[in-house]
């Protein structure tokens, strides 16, 4: 009698645990991320960007800080300029928001990034001359 109750309880617990296991993890929402990008500053090969963007960025960061090379190629600033929408005030899309370009994936894969401890998570205010160059 006792054994049967225990068995039933275990069965229920097992069923609860297995519930939802058939579902695939939800895909990250990339609608924001893809909204503006035509040419990637890192590589046009999307899988290469996903896999190795951190290496490109890290390499470029040293070239910029130590050698003063501030081109758009592999530039962290360009990621933000292109992929984060320019919004004002309360509506600003923060890096803590899951819809922020970097967070769409970083939240999904559970990898912490601390670029935004120092770097702004907002696109640069662009004057007319600069905006023309970006086009």
């Amino acid at each position: 009698m006792f054994g049967k109750t225990k068995f039933m309880l275990m069965l229920i617990a097992l069923a609860t645990m297995l519930y939802g296991c058939g579902d695939v993890a939800p895909e990250p929402d990339e609608s924001v991320a893809k909204a503006k990008a035509e040419h990637c500053a890192i590589s046009d090969d999307e899988s290469e960007v996903r896999k190795n963007h951190m290496n490109y960025l890290k390499h470029k960061r040293d070239r910029t800080v130590h050698d003063g090379i501030r081109t758009k190629d592999h530039s962290f600033k360009e990621c933000i300029n292109c992929h984060v929408p320019k919004l004002e005030g309360e509506n600003k899309l923060r890096h803590t928001d899951e819809k922020h370009f970097c967070s769409t994936c970083h939240t999904y894969v559970g990898v912490k990034l601390d670029c935004f401890e120092c770097h702004t998570d907002q696109p640069e205010a662009q004057d007319a001359a600069k905006a023309e160059g970006v086009k």
Binding site: I80, C118, H119
Partner: peptide, 11 residues
């Protein structure tokens, strides 16, 4: 900090 200048990161 938040909203630093893009050309002058500070943290």
């Amino acid at each position: 900090l938040q909203d630093q200048k893009a050309y002058s990161p500070r943290g």
